[in-house]
């Protein structure tokens, strides 16, 4: 929808600073690798023929999972640090203003917009409340759950006394037993997968239909508004 009329004013705000953007894309990549390799750990590829010493397929898949897991975990810690030193929008991922009425009314408005019940979405410099809710619940809370269960599973192979065991070993009896931890970790993969499907769809849709830029914002950092109305 490019009317290209000279009267259309586009205001812009610098929202996502470079480290946050770099984190977003690194994180997106690591989560994609984690979900795919995780699925293949649960349901391995068809058997390879030949000698065992000819192949190391599961080994490589698991290695990719663990490498991506460390990138995800270190990235998460970095993102936490950036929330402390970054701008106000960098804090959104770790703070949900659920005590504010306004948050809920805007959330409802956003739901109605997606249900085609509103003519127009509202403008947001940061995340819209629906996206905000999903990001906090699934990426922050969900990510923490995946890291705790993931490192607990990792402690089983690194062994008693390893740092993974000392820090996360308690998760196993806390959840039940090893198989339970695996299955919750596995459920988490599906929840994150569904989040990503919705997230990518809404990012593209809103980029086209809403009154502001989205995808380019996560690339350049600037939020462009397509109109000057409030």
């Amino acid at each position: 929808m490019n009317t290209a009329l000279p009267t259309v004013k586009r205001t812009a705000v610098y929202v996502y600073e470079a480290p946050l953007r770099a984190w977003h894309w690194t994180n997106a990549l690591s989560l994609t690798v984690l979900a795919v390799t995780g699925y293949l750990i649960g349901s391995p590829l068809p058997t390879l023929s030949g000698e065992a010493s000819d192949h190391y397929l599961m080994g490589y898949i698991r290695f990719a999972h663990f490498a991506a897991a460390y990138i995800f975990a270190v990235g998460f810690l970095f993102r936490l640090y950036w929330a402390m030193v970054g701008n106000r929008w960098s804090r959104q991922l770790f703070a949900l203003p659920f005590w504010r009425r306004r948050f809920w009314s805007e959330l409802w408005h956003e739901v109605r917009w997606y249900a085609f019940l509103e003519q127009e979405p509202r403008k947001y410099i940061g995340h819209n409340p629906l996206a905000h809710l999903f990001m906090v619940v699934i990426i922050t809370v969900g990510g923490i759950v995946m890291m705790f269960t993931g490192f607990a599973l990792y402690s089983e192979q690194s062994g008693l006394g390893s740092w993974q065991d000392r820090w996360f070993g308690w998760v196993i009896p806390f959840v039940g037993q090893s198989q339970d931890v695996r299955m919750w970790h596995h459920w988490g993969m599906w929840i994150i997968t569904i989040f990503v499907m919705l997230h990518v769809y809404t990012a593209i849709r809103e980029d086209i239909l809403s009154r502001q830029s989205l995808i380019s914002t996560m690339i350049s950092g600037w939020r462009m508004f397509k109109d000057d109305r409030p």
Binding site: R88, W89, A95, E106, H109, R122, K123, Y124, P230
Partner: peptide
Amino acid sequence: KQQTGDRS
């Protein structure tokens, strides 16, 4: 009629 939502 609403304001730009900036809740952070």
